[in-house]
C-alpha cells in the first residue's frame, strides 16, 4: 500500500513504538483483570490486541489526514471486557474510571445512540490515557450477547464494501432487539435470585424455618446457624474427642431423600432424634479410645436414628450408607450391625 508521506511518518512512529504498545497492552490488561477480581466483578473475558501494521495502514490510507501524529489514533491498543450481565458493564466502566484518566470527549456510549425504533450495536467505548504516556487506548465493554451480535454483524461484512440485502440486515437487527430483551431477563433473574436469598436469610434468622423450602441455597443458610454443633459437642465429650470439620453438603440429598421439604423438617429431626443419635454414638465409641471424630458424625447418626425410629430398618440404613459412601456390599453388613446395636438402646425401646 502506497501511503502519502504524512501517513508514512505516522507508520514509522508506530514501528518504533510497537514494543512499547505490546508491553503496555499486557500490563494494562493485567491491571484491569486484577482490579476487577479484587472488586469481585466476575467477567466472561478480557481480551486485548495491538493494532497490526496492515490494519493501521488501511486506516491511514482512508483517513490519514485526520491525524496529526500517532498519538491521535486512540485504538492502537484495544481492550475488550465482556461481561455476563448487562449491569456489570457499568460496574466495569466505574472500575476503569478509578484506574485511568478517561478521555470523555472521545468516549462514546453506543447504548445511548439508538433511536427508540432502532436496534443494533450496543457497547460502551472508553478512551483512556496510558499512564505516563502521550498515547491513549480504547476499551470496549459489552455483554456476552452483545459481543456475539457484534461478531455476527461484523461477519455480515459492513466493512467488506459488499452491499448486504436489506432482509438480512433487518433479520440481524430483529435479533439485536431480542438479545436486548434476553440480557435484561438475565439481569432480572439475577436480581430475583439475590432477593430470594435475602428473604431466605431473613426467614432463617427469624426462626421461621417451616416456611423455607429445602434447597442448596437454603441449606447453606441453615448451616450458618451451626445446627449440628450441639449434638457434635455432646458426642465429642464422650471421649474428649477432637472434631474434624467436614462439609455437610452431602447431607442435603440425604435429608431430601428422607422426605424433608423445608428447613423446619430438618429442625424437627434434630429436635426429635438427637437423643437417639447420641445414644448410637455413645454405644459405638464410648468403649474405644477414639479421640477424633468428623463433624458429619452428628447428621449421620441423626439420620440413622430417624430411619430406625421411622421403622426403616436394615434396608433404610443400607440406603443411607449407599447415598453417603457410595454403593458397596459392606454397607449391608454395617446396616445389619447397626440395627442390632440400636435394638438394645433406650431410644428404640420407649
Amino acid at each position: 500500500m502506497l501511503l502519502d508521506p504524512h501517513s508514512q511518518a505516522i507508520l514509522e512512529e508506530y514501528r518504533t513504538d510497537l514494543p512499547f504498545f505490546k508491553e503496555k497492552s499486557e500490563e494494562l490488561t493485567r491491571k484491569v483483570r486484577d482490579f476487577l477480581a479484587s472488586a469481585g466483578i466476575i467477567v466472561a473475558a478480557i481480551e486485548s490486541r495491538v493494532k497490526t501494521e496492515a490494519s493501521l495502514s488501511g486506516k491511514l490510507d482512508l483517513k490519514g489526514n485526520k491525524y496529526s501524529s500517532l498519538a491521535d489514533i486512540t485504538d492502537i491498543i484495544g481492550m475488550r471486557v465482556i461481561t455476563f450481565y448487562i449491569d456489570d458493564v457499568d460496574k466495569v466502566a466505574s472500575a476503569l474510571e478509578r484506574l485511568f484518566d478517561v478521555d470523555w470527549e472521545n468516549s462514546v456510549d453506543k447504548r445511548k445512540v439508538h433511536e427508540i425504533d432502532s436496534f443494533g450495536y450496543l457497547s460502551l467505548h472508553y478512551i483512556c490515557r496510558i499512564p505516563d504516556s502521550r498515547y491513549r487506548f480504547e476499551v470496549q465493554m459489552r455483554t456476552v450477547l452483545q459481543h456475539a451480535w457484534a461478531n455476527m454483524n461484523h461477519d455480515t461484512g459492513y466493512k467488506s464494501g459488499v452491499e448486504v440485502p436489506r432482509e438480512y440486515l433487518r433479520n440481524l437487527n430483529r435479533l439485536a432487539g431480542m438479545l436486548e430483551l434476553v440480557d435484561e431477563q438475565f439481569s432480572q433473574i439475577r436480581m430475583d435470585l439475590t432477593d430470594y436469598r435475602r428473604r431466605v436469610r431473613a426467614l432463617v434468622a427469624s426462626g421461621n424455618l417451616d416456611e423455607v423450602p429445602l434447597d442448596g441455597d437454603t441449606f447453606k443458610s441453615f448451616l450458618a446457624l451451626h445446627p449440628f454443633d450441639q449434638l457434635n459437642r455432646r458426642i465429642a465429650s464422650v471421649n474428649q474427642a477432637e472434631i474434624h470439620e467436614q462439609s455437610f453438603m452431602p447431607f442435603l440429598k440425604v435429608f431430601k431423600d428422607l422426605g424433608c421439604k423445608t428447613l423446619g423438617d430438618i429442625s424437627s429431626i434434630i429436635r426429635d432424634c438427637s437423643e437417639g443419635a447420641y445414644q448410637i454414638a455413645c454405644y459405638q465409641i464410648g468403649l474405644t479410645d477414639l479421640d477424633i471424630i468428623s463433624s458429619t458424625i452428628g447428621p449421620q447418626d441423626l439420620c440413622i436414628a430417624y430411619i430406625l425410629i421411622q421403622g426403616g430398618g436394615k434396608a433404610g440404613i443400607k440406603y443411607l450408607f449407599d447415598l453417603l459412601n457410595g454403593p458397596a456390599p459392606s454397607n449391608e453388613s454395617m446396616a445389619e450391625m447397626l440395627v442390632e446395636q440400636a435394638g438394645n438402646l433406650p431410644f428404640m425401646n420407649q
Binding site: 452431602p250 477414639l290 477424633i292 468428623s294 458424625i297 453417603l324 459412601n325 457410595g326
Partner: peptide, 14 residues
C-alpha cells in the same frame, strides 16, 4: 469390616 466400622463410627467413611 472392623476397620470400616471405625471409619463409620467416627464419620470418616464418606
Amino acid at each position: 469390616n472392623d476397620i470400616r466400622q471405625v471409619f463409620m463410627m467416627t464419620g470418616f467413611l464418606n
